[in-house]
Design a protein around this nucleic acid. Structure first.
Lengths: 191, 191
DNA sequence: CGGCAAAAGCAAACGCGTTTGCTTTAGGCT
DNA sequence: AGCCTAAAGCAAACGCGTTTGCTTTTGCCG
């Protein structure tokens, strides 16, 4: 039996927010007691619920990502990709978004179980591409979208290079321009 | 006055190797005492020299990167980029290379001082492009190289998607194919 | 509205990572 | 070869993150 609402939910949200705020404030190695204090919560509650700092960070990062940049349904592939990519760009221009991306990457152990959220977002992307294909549009693969749009945005943040306004639009433009010419550089669906 | 060789160098190398081996073996949160034990070294030596686990990991990652995938001088831009990118691909297909990339990203605090090595590699890339331009070749910007080639390779590793053999060649092909058409999506030099 | 149990709070004990003062080793220069 | 000192080793003390047994709160279901 589990308790999704009430105090449990309040504690969860307070802890998540404390993580984001502390990390964004530069306390990159904030300990669990520090996070608990900031959240107004007992450290034991965190230990019992999340077990380790890494699990907590991963959970906080995924939870934040989940609320960011959904893929819209605009009626055209370009519109869908643009709406999504601009959401990603906005998140990547925000310090807290940057921090959480780094936390996500840092805590994804190389051989841990797959992050369910990432798989789901890959499916969303595939669905948008399928819709466009059904409309008769020429569509890229998921891998191409990730290569052309997501990877450059993320790499800028992870390597601390600036994300200029309009980057997302230029990257989507590149992807769609490249479409008629080149074959996919890698087969299969992405995560 | 400093001591570059002898015992100091042996300790440094042993510690670096211990870091790589432990992380690659899945001990992602190996503590300094564990690393010291593996290296056959006193923990105090690590604390005194590196100060913190993050500094050590960053140093180990950069040191390893430094020995990987230099930019060759083949006489053509395609050859230079291919040689370099295939070196990166090789590193990214190796578990230890994957681990160290993740460690690098994880320990690069958002507002810490720039990592000298990354700047230097950006300069190397720029130099290769300049040479090609001097030969009259049509050349991309550093940012375009990073977007088209490095970002997709790194993102695959960081998000634990497979790096298929030949990925580097396909990415370089894409970059050079896109050249005549599109303008650079972002100005400035890369890191 | 009453009761069961999940989850939070509390406090004390534990373990281990970290710091520190000192000693010993050995690199590099004359 | 011999001196000087940077750097490694050692050991003990310290501090704090973590664990654990128990109590208290409170969400949720009948």
């Amino acid at each position: 039996m589990t308790r999704p609402g009430g105090r449990s939910a309040r504690v969860r949200d307070a802890v998540h927010e404390a993580v984001v705020e502390l990390l964004a404030a530069g306390e990159i190695d904030a300990t669990i007691p520090k996070i608990a204090e900031r959240a107004g919560v007992n450290p034991t509650s965190i230990y019992r619920r999340w077990g380790s700092r890494d699990h907590l960070l991963l959970d906080a990062a995924v939870t934040r990502l989940r609320t960011t940049s959904p893929i819209p349904d605009t009626g055209s592939l370009r519109g869908d990709l643009l709406g999504w990519a601009e959401g990603v760009e906005r998140a990547m221009r925000d310090r807290r978004g940057q921090i959480m991306l780094r936390a996500l990457v840092a805590t994804m152990a190389p051989d841990a179980e797959p992050v369910e959220y990432l798989r789901a977002r890959g499916d969303d992307l595939q669905a948008a591409l399928d819709k466009a294909a059904a409309r008769g549009e020429r569509v890229p693969t998921v891998d191409e979208v990730l290569d052309f749009v997501l990877a450059p945005l993320y790499l800028r943040v992870l390597f601390r290079r600036p994300v200029e306004p309009g980057t997302a639009a230029r990257l989507v433009g590149r992807l769609l321009t490249a479409l008629p010419a080149g074959p996919a550089p890698s087969a299969g669906r992405g995560g």
